[in-house]
């Protein structure tokens, strides 16, 4: 993973930022069955990814009803939850991802 910060100061930060911008996104969306929230979340995340992370993302959709042990392993409380595994740091976006702006901020695709 290309997120090692070397050197100091602004240069290092800029480098890290550039690396992240070009790095691959590994996303996991945990939903709880086929509910309106689930459907919206899936639709929303797909839209955002296609729009902003074209060709550099991997999205996995998991139904916690089917795999309840994963819910424990991944510390899922809310559904739907989108977890950004990569790039680090780990982020959790909970909700149906309806607000695109918040999603982009959450994925660090927009500055806070």
């Amino acid at each position: 993973m290309g997120n090692s910060v070397t050197g100091t100061g602004l240069a290092a930060l800029t480098k890290a930022r550039r690396q992240r911008d070009s790095s691959k996104y590994l996303l996991k969306l945990y939903v709880a069955g086929v509910t309106p929230h689930s459907a919206e979340a899936i639709r929303n995340v797909s839209t955002v990814c296609e729009k902003h992370l074209h060709n550099r993302y991997e999205l996995e959709i998991i139904d916690i009803y089917q795999q309840p042990t994963l819910a424990r392993g991944e510390q899922i409380i809310a559904a739907p939850t989108l977890i950004r595994k990569l790039p680090l740091p780990l982020r959790r976006l909970i909700g149906n991802l309806a607000s695109e702006n918040t999603v982009l901020v959450g994925l660090d695709l927009l500055p806070r």
Binding site: I77, R92, L93, G95
Partner: peptide
């Protein structure tokens, strides 16, 4: 584990995750 700094709210949700874990 709930880490406030990791969490971003992006709309409607429920706590089904908790229910599923507990139920399992």
């Amino acid at each position: 584990r709930i880490e406030r700094s990791e969490i971003e709210e992006t709309g409607e949700y429920d706590l089904e995750g908790l229910f599923v874990r507990l139920g399992a």
